[in-house]
């Protein structure tokens, strides 16, 4: 899913970091958002809803809709679309997955 070469935009030089999502380890790049890093790793489901237990992912992409909220290092309801990854960041989806872990 990563765009390595772009006809107009310069390539980005970024350091690799490691994050975990629901206990599994993934590679990400410093400076990118949690939502982008997970999508680059083919992950679209970021949480399950409270009532219907329905999966939700990125919707507005700019922090307005709060659909992408995840738990980051024990802090709940962090917006994955506007929060940057950090090395060793521990991310957990909210909803049924979080209850299981």
């Amino acid at each position: 899913m990563r765009i390595k070469k772009h006809p107009i935009l310069e390539s980005l030089e970024r350091k690799e970091v490691q994050i975990t999502y629901n206990g599994k380890s993934y590679l990400a790049f410093e400076g990118e958002t949690i939502a982008a890093a997970l999508l680059a790793n083919q992950i679209r489901i970021l949480r399950y809803t409270e009532k219907g237990k329905a999966p939700r992912g990125i919707y507005c992409g700019i922090g307005h809709c709060y659909e992408c909220r995840v738990t980051v290092d024990d802090e709940r309801s962090v917006r994955a679309c506007i929060t940057r990854v950090k090395d060793q960041m521990k991310i957990i989806s909210q909803g049924i997955d979080a209850d299981e872990i």
Partner: peptide, 8 residues
Amino acid sequence: MGICQGRT
């Protein structure tokens, strides 16, 4: 009335 307060 939810967390996005009606923005959507």
